[in-house]
Design a protein around this nucleic acid. Structure first.
Lengths: 88, 88
DNA sequence: TAAATATTTAGATAATTATCTAATTATATA
DNA sequence: TATATAATTAGATAATTATCTAAATATTTA
């Protein structure tokens, strides 16, 4: 979960996740939504990938990014367990 | 949620939260569980407090820290909404 | 095949963060 | 009241991070 927490501790990366909620997008489309440079977005996408929060698939010259939600189970469980501890 | 994500993006702070799951503890007791200095723990406790994840209460010369789980609602909701988007 | 487009990699840098020691503040006790 | 204990604040520093520009790689198209 280490990498998950790092990945979501950044507003740009959280916004990328939000965008991917609606549809899969190419690196370029994602980049267009931000003011920061393409290499910076590439860097953010890499961190999201390392955290298994996104999957990338190359189609021709484009790279499509999509949400991977399987990691969320563990994190949600951890948070719920914290919450329940509070209500003891 | 900004401060929440920052707060939990650190192993020491996540461990502090884990410890507080079982019982309320003084700053000193928390500090004793780690190898790092008391001022560093104080710094981590402050970040947890800023994120509203802990509450502190002074009793005599001791400061007791306890878990505050109310913030978790929003975070869990956000994660669940991400998860559901994935299943579309 | 040459040029254009999409993306990532490399290398540099400013800002942020986690840590330390020393000093300070607040409380309790001899 | 002086000393000990608990905790935080101040100031410094090394490590990490997010960003940039320039260059490289891969693919498509003229």
């Amino acid at each position: 979960m280490k990498k998950f927490f790092k990945a979501v501790d950044d507003i740009t990366r959280r916004e990328i996740l939000e965008m991917l909620k609606t549809k899969d997008m190419t690196a370029g489309e994602i980049s267009d939504a931000f003011q920061i440079s393409k290499p910076s977005i590439s860097y953010h996408l890499d961190l999201l990938k390392q955290a298994d929060l996104v999957i990338s698939e190359k189609k021709g010259q484009y790279v499509y990014y999509s949400l991977n939600t399987s990691v969320l189970e563990d994190v949600i469980s951890w948070l719920v367990s914290l919450k329940q501890a509070g209500g003891k």
